[in-house]
Simulated assay, not measured.
Amino acid sequence: MSETSTRLAVGVVLAAGMGTRVGADGNKAYLPLAGRSMVSWAVEAVARCAQVDRIVLVFRCGERELAERTLAAELPGVTVEFVEGGQTRHGSEENVLDHLAPDIEAGDVDVVLIHDAARPLAGPDMMDTALTTARAHGGAIPVLAMTDVVKVDAADDISAVDGTLARVQTPQAFRARALLDAYRLAADANFDGTDTSACVQGFTATEVRVFPGAPTNVKVTFGPDVRVAELLLAARHSR
């Protein structure tokens, strides 16, 4: 097997969540944004990264047909593998790693990128930075300094936070073997985390580097976020 063939990156898009906080009647990943579903924008960003060789969409139980139909209509030229998600984000990541395990163990996949369908504005440049950094160091996560946070002391006095807090975004990327090992060890410990990097750092010695996130890489969580994301997408594609 050639060196090129062993350096394969898999891009994973997680779309197995709910839409309760955003007010969606069902899975928010399929909300329409600027003429397409939110999930298709996220998948397209992963697909446009030249380093990504395979794409996996993690769908919510019972929604495989919806996922396949949506992507076939909106991204007809993109080949996507489908994996059923779990009850939690961590469980969904476990499922996709089980799917990829034979190829990771064989050395056919060297890095895995994890992205949220709820972040439709991440660009392929962020995917590329995450993968390049993960290959070089072990793991990579985009972060933004939290400048809009204050703290309240026991006397109810308000003061600025010292600037050490950061907001973590996706895409995150990790060397595939370390990621698989982390989730297997987490399963043995009955650990169910809310962030991929926390699991990797908690169960392996993998070095996880940070790189600058993007203020426009918004996560669609609440109702107003939908309008913000739609306006940003429309502005981007009207240039």
Rank of each mutant, 00 (worst) to 15 (best):
S92M: 13
V78R: 06
V109Y: 04
V112S: 02
L121Y: 00
H115L: 14
N95I: 10
E68V: 06
V83R: 13
E94C: 15
A118L: 09
L121N: 09
R89E: 10
E94F: 08
D116L: 15
A72S: 06
L100A: 10
E74W: 01
V109S: 02
E74G: 03
L97H: 06
A118Y: 00
G77M: 15
I104L: 04
A118C: 12
A73T: 11
L97K: 05
G85M: 11
V78W: 02
V80Y: 04
E93S: 11
T79S: 15
G91H: 04
L121E: 02
P76E: 06
G77F: 05
L113I: 15
A106L: 14
V111Y: 02
R89T: 11
E84L: 11
E74F: 03
R119E: 01
S92Y: 15
D98N: 10
D103Y: 00
L100Y: 03
H90R: 15
A117Y: 00
V112F: 00
E105G: 02
V109W: 04
E94D: 09
I114F: 00
E94H: 08
D98P: 08
L121G: 07
E105W: 08
A101C: 11
L97T: 01
P120L: 14
E68A: 14
E94Q: 15
G86V: 05
D98S: 10
V80P: 01
A118H: 01
A72D: 04
D108Y: 00
A117E: 02
I104Q: 01
E93R: 13
T88K: 14
T79L: 14
P120V: 10
N95V: 11
I114Y: 00
E84I: 14
T88M: 13
G85I: 10
D110P: 02
D103H: 03
L113A: 12
Q87Y: 13
P120E: 15
T70V: 12
A72H: 05
H90S: 13
D98V: 11
A72Y: 06
V78E: 06
G91A: 06
A73W: 13
G77T: 11
L75R: 07
P102D: 11
V112Q: 01
E105K: 14
T88F: 11
G85L: 13
L113S: 05
L100K: 07
V112E: 01
H115T: 09
V112W: 00
R89L: 15
A117H: 02
I114N: 04
V96W: 00
V109K: 04
D98F: 07
D108V: 14
V111P: 03
E94T: 09
G77R: 10
L97A: 06
G107I: 08
P102V: 14
D103L: 15
L121K: 06
L75P: 02
V96L: 04
H99A: 07
A67G: 00
L97D: 04
R89V: 15
D108R: 07
D103C: 10
E81A: 14
G85T: 09
E84P: 05
V112G: 02
A122H: 04
A118I: 10
E93L: 12
A73P: 01
D116T: 08
A118Q: 05
F82S: 15
V109M: 13
A101K: 14
P76G: 08
G107Y: 05
A118N: 10
E93M: 12
G86C: 06
